[in-house]
Design a protein around this nucleic acid. Structure first.
Lengths: 342, 342
DNA sequence: CATTTTTCCGATAACGTTATCATAGACAGA
DNA sequence: TCTGTCTATGATAACGTTATCGGAAAAATG
């Protein structure tokens, strides 16, 4: 059929109008006579014309693309966020460009260059530590952006969406305390991550409020991966006085905890209770189903996108930093500690 | 600092050369004197110049973006494919635009319009049924594309990547037969999906080869979701002569099977064996870990991307249709059937 | 030294759209 | 009828690049 991509000029010629008039029709401008509009629209339809976004972008200065940058694609955690972003974006004309940093310094600059070159309308960043110099660079290029769940320190003027980590840490601990647990271990993320610190602080607050001592042996650092859960659980079980409950830093970690406990012949929740963090889909699929602190990840993605859309539109933000509430989701993985006569 | 985005013209003026020369430096053309090149490069660096991809795209006719279209973002299945695509793309200068169809006819046209308007360099499509008219439209617009795991009938001239579903269905069935099972149920996807048909055909082939009768009651259709696994398992258990093994159509479905069996007080694999399909990460996290037919999803994504890159480069494809091998991954969810005296 | 080739660089014209401004005609009010 | 608004349209110039061509030095060749 039509080999080449048809242009606005062809349509204009065929419809017997000028080029700007076609443009006006395409953009639904009011100043076109109804008869003309109809004629042009018919020609457009017949020719199977599709307008070039590129040319549009060049002239208009906005590309219709927003960038979503995540550290990795290896955890359901990120996918939930991606889903939230997509949900909002699919109702707009914007496309989502997805890229990863892998936290390598080699690639650090690369994504930034890609983002800036790409004439993004804006960016949503799910970053690991630091990288605040990168943010400066984005700002210098006047690229609107929102940071999701930044794990480091963030300036007060940086638009960001997070979750109430402190409250989550406290809620999980309080719940375990209410079941009667007195030796509760917490496996966190890297100690230099803000969210880890917050959760540990919440954990300490709950213990202190209950008048219980804090045993540094029961606070274990690590990564948010399965392996960490496994390893640290083994270490905890080797303690002279092992914990009766383990609060993991992520649901993935909790899966590692499950595996380690099974390997030691311990049953959840009869012998030991487990609480996760995140509430990703797996939590409902394992047995026993995992009691966890829900982070509204998809909603964080949605919220960040909504904020970004406002920034792009030039509207002011109600608040620079938004923290969505975490909540305790009780399932089957917790029970009162085994009777002390054991 | 510099408020506006700097252009090639500014660089040219500052370096005392013409605009095309700057362009030549940017594109590493050989016909630039070393001294000039160095001078221009220095100015570029000092000015913090980044070239406009949009203008480049308009002039060159290629946008540097490839589209990845998936039906949904609600299954680890798609994420594995996305990961594979990303792995290849991150080594190139191309960006990935991710969008979903949700299999709604309302959105069907929309993604297509987005893809075509967006001046994509190419597209990778993970589609549900049908939609071959859409493919025609892409072809008409000369947009290179590759289809991943198309679930319907595909013309022989359509570049596509799939998995050996028939072999997978057969391998799973043979494995269960080798353990001594004689009543094996299969839960598949929609009967009109090609992959479902293939797997069922593989299942039948294995049974026939073993000289066993095929009981239509044991072949259950459904979706690839967890709920289907649960529902169909309940139905199977209600049979006068229930199966001793269940071959699920996806790992997610298998999770539903697990849940239903637990609800009926049956143990895996002691009372009943389960095999999944896909081998997504969950398979290793549940207990017992899931024996499954591995589909190399990430590799399918990688392969599709590699093929697309060739198409974009104008190189010929070795083969239009590539099927990657499925393989049986033996874990803990299968055992010989319980002794018949039960 | 004259001639050819090579190397480097600049003028200019695209790419396909939209914004700006100007203008022709229609219509109302005096 | 004249003047002044309003409406619909067209000419033209951008947006920031790259491709094409031509030409001036510089280098190679006779």
């Amino acid at each position: 059929m039509n080999r080449r991509r048809s242009t606005i000029a062809e349509i204009a010629a065929r419809a017997g109008v000028s080029i700007p008039t076609v443009s006006r029709v395409l953009n639904n401008r009011p100043d076109v006579a109804p008869a003309t509009r109809e004629r042009v629209e018919r020609v457009i339809r017949e020719a199977g014309y599709v307008r070039s976004r590129v040319a549009n972008a060049l002239r208009r200065g906005s590309s219709g693309i927003i960038d979503l940058v995540v550290p990795d694609l290896d955890s359901p955690y990120y996918f939930e966020i991606i889903r939230g972003v997509e949900e909002v974006l699919e109702r707009t004309e914007l496309r989502m460009a997805l890229s990863t940093t892998h936290d390598e310094s080699r690639r650090e600059r690369q994504w930034l260059r890609q983002v800036i070159e790409g004439a993004t309308d804006g960016a949503i960043l799910v970053l690991a530590q630091g990288q605040s110099e990168r943010l400066d660079e984005l700002r210098r290029h006047r690229i609107p952006f929102v940071v999701v769940d930044h794990r480091g320190e963030l300036g007060p003027d940086v638009p960001s969406v997070g979750a109430t980590n402190w409250a989550g840490g406290r809620a999980a601990t309080e719940y375990l305390l209410s079941l009667g647990h007195r030796r509760i271990a917490i496996i966190a993320g890297w100690p230099n991550l803000r969210c880890s610190q917050d959760r540990i602080a919440g954990y300490r607050a709950a213990l202190e409020e209950a008048g219980l001592p804090i045993d540094p042996e029961l606070i274990r650092p690590g990564e948010f991966r399965q392996q960490t859960g496994y390893d640290q659980t083994c270490a905890l079980l080797a303690l002279p006085q092992p914990p009766t409950a383990i609060f993991a830093g992520s649901d993935l970690q909790a899966m590692g905890v499950y595996a380690a406990l099974r390997a030691h012949g311990l049953r959840v929740p009869d012998d030991i209770s487990v609480v996760g963090f995140d509430d990703v889909p797996i939590a409902t699929m394992v047995s026993p189903t995992l009691t966890t602190i829900r982070q509204p990840l998809a909603e964080m993605g949605r919220m960040a996108t909504t904020m970004l859309l406002r920034l792009i539109a030039g509207e002011p933000l109600d608040s620079m930093r938004i923290e969505l509430a975490t909540s305790l989701v009780v399932r089957e993985s917790c029970a009162p500690p085994p009777s002390p006569d054991r």
